[in-house]
Design a protein around this nucleic acid. Sequence first.
DNA 1: ACAAGTCGGTTGTTTTTACAACGGAAAAGA
DNA 2: TCTTTTCCGTTGTAAAAACAACCGACTTGT
Lengths: 219, 219
Amino acid sequence: MKKYIPVLKRTKLFSGVGEEDISSLLSCLGARKKEYKKGEYILREGEHISDIFILVEGKIHIQKDDYWGNRSILSVLSVGEMFGEAYSSPESGALLNDVVAVEDSSVIFFDVRRILTTCSSACRFHNMIVQNMFFAISEKNRRLVQKLGHMSGRTTRAKLISYLSEEAKRQGSSSFTVPFNRQQLADYLCVDRSAMSSELCKMRDEGLISFEKSRFELL
Amino acid sequence: MKKYIPVLKRTKLFSGVGEEDISSLLSCLGARKKEYKKGEYILREGEHISDIFILVEGKIHIQKDDYWGNRSILSVLSVGEMFGEAYSSPESGALLNDVVAVEDSSVIFFDVRRILTTCSSACRFHNMIVQNMFFAISEKNRRLVQKLGHMSGRTTRAKLISYLSEEAKRQGSSSFTVPFNRQQLADYLCVDRSAMSSELCKMRDEGLISFEKSRFELL
DNA sequence: ACAAGTCGGTTGTTTTTACAACGGAAAAGA
DNA sequence: TCTTTTCCGTTGTAAAAACAACCGACTTGT
């Protein structure tokens, strides 16, 4: 676990905490590590958890498959990001989504209640970590709202424009790469892949965008 | 402002804090109150805020109108609920939605940074309030995820079923009232009102549901 | 009591999407 | 290298939603 301390240091959760303190915090909080192969489920819808998870290696999707087999991808997490924090408090119900490794991944997890309820030797970080959690979950909140913004468009085109514009803004360039292949992008925007594909080509032919594989450009 | 202390006491934010302490906290945090008429905008998309807001009277919608005039209702807040907390930290950008009073409403607001960064006379509540904020925002997070679940359905029917089932579950009865009229429900689910209306009737004729005004029953 | 406005349902038309199926190019694996 | 799989664009058809317009019932305000 030691080798991941530099990674942890750069996470939002441990922002402001030194490496040696992280080290003692980890043992104090009973942190554990687990590895997952590409395609493996890390968590499943309906589970109850009391841990929070930090991805220290790989890439994961938060997603859900509905009754009819349609997949919807809620979000993509990459190294350093946290998940499970919204479901780890006692009053929260079961998980609403699956968490799946889309690359070979490593995850560190530990019980949040120890952060929230006790005041052990980690006490001096207690406040800072809770505050960091608050900031992190705030940011997630804003991301969810953004995603809802993309999905509120009535047509596939509106969803694509909304998503691509935001991605361009986020990456600070009109030319950018999306973290999805076509099927995944369709799953993310909750539309049919082939319909989306033809819509993308229509937009290209109209001179709105250009693209090649996962690289897009707004014109 | 005093008259709202019993209301505040029952909010998630002040959970566990006594009335007399709330009173001193309020003045300490420089809380202010403002009133809004039905239809008035409390906050607008694009604004930057550093306050959090608590609705102490009335009812508000978090919503957004897109380029083409389609409205999408993100959520409905009723008395005792908090808003703005995800946008009040310094690193967060501009508001992504409008906040509108749908009834005559009263709002109390104060600067979060005072909670997060200082340790004044309110110090003994400092931790508790930050923790409460964390729980509250966690719950919002889960609600947003649920809403995304409703919107991820491909058809209007799927969205309706998802929303109505959850509402039934939440209210613990197969017969329940939704906080929307038809136009608002359509705006919430991001579909066309007339299409939704006819879909509802189709579902009724198929014996799936029954309804009258805003009261629905799952059969 | 009357006028104006809101609300919910209905209909018909046009546009858009879902779905299923195919094929070629590229990538992955043996 | 050869085979298999994945990825992406394309097409045609059926289904669904958007849009616009209208009506009657009910509310609201004067």
